[in-house]
């Protein structure tokens, strides 16, 4: 009996490893398909629309509220040390370095990643992917590659919008409502936030863009082609993307700001 559970553990481990291998092979094929979007840029435009434009509202509104909350919370903490003028620094640093890329990635995983998984999964379940293959069209290049690059391009832009809107939200609350000095808000921010911080944030969100779209596309492409399979894949896509984003965020933060 104990041996059986050990065997089950081994089977599970091998299965996970095999999935990981397939996911990497798929990513490789997707990335190599870049020629397809150079030949048909319209495919890419449509996907930037699906992933970027359609996520704009939720990202913008979330950014505004996160910035406003940061402004409120930060003010009460900083005011205790008599450092309310540093509010701008606090809001901008946390948004640009962390919250912008991470929260945007989580929102995109929920808003666009799940839709991608469901779309690809249903295309597989309804034999549309096989149909394309039979028309001598490579579904990886035609269907997956534009979605991948669309996500990778849209993510940093969305994260930048999130951070910018968030800073404005913090500004409205801090300067508008709580009476922090406007000059101090901006000047301290500009003195303490580096362009390197902004660059690090962009690099992070590029990595997250790869992670979120890759997981979403793989889950869809690898789905069990039944309605239950697609629904499980969609859930898994969001959960795995969120976990991997948070884990990778820790590693990236340690690499970028640790040294």
């Amino acid at each position: 009996m104990r041996l059986e559970s050990l065997a089950r553990l081994g089977r599970g481990g091998l299965g996970a490893l095999e999935r990981l291998g397939r996911a990497h092979l798929l990513l490789f094929a997707i990335v190599l398909g870049v020629g397809e979007i150079l030949r048909r840029p319209r495919l890419l435009t449509a996907q930037i629309f699906n992933i970027g434009v359609l996520s704009l509202l939720i990202v913008g509104v979330s950014g505004l509220f996160v910035g406003m909350v940061l402004g409120l919370q930060g003010y009460y903490v900083l005011a205790q040390f008599g450092a309310a003028q540093s509010l701008g620094v606090m809001v901008a640093t946390s948004l640009v370095r962390e919250l912008g890329p991470v929260v945007t990635a989580l929102l995109v995983a929920g808003r666009a990643g799940s839709a991608l998984t469901a779309e690809i999964g249903l295309m597989k379940a309804t034999e549309q992917l096989s149909g394309l293959e039979m028309m001598a069209v490579d579904p990886v290049r035609r269907i997956l590659t534009p979605r991948f690059y669309g996500g990778v391009i849209a993510m940093p832009l969305l994260a930048a919008i999130f951070s910018a809107v968030g800073v404005l939200g913090g500004y409205f609350v801090g300067v508008g409502l709580l009476g922090v000095d406007e000059g101090a808000f901006w000047s301290q921010m500009q003195a303490k936030v580096d362009f390197d911080d902004v660059m690090d944030g962009i690099v992070k969100s590029l990595v997250f863009g790869v992670i979120v779209t890759w997981i979403a596309l793989f889950e869809g492409y690898d789905t069990v082609p039944t309605s239950e399979g697609v629904s499980r894949s969609t859930t898994r896509s969001v959960v795995h993307a969120a976990l991997v984003v948070l884990g990778v965020d820790f590693v990236l933060t340690a690499l970028m700001f640790g040294g």
Binding site: F49, V53, P156, L157, A160, A164, V167
Partner: peptide
Amino acid sequence: TVGAFMALGFLALFFLAMQISN
């Protein structure tokens, strides 16, 4: 709309670069 979205994204990046990190 994609064009407008990308312009908005780059504007936000510009804002982050200039206004926030100076």
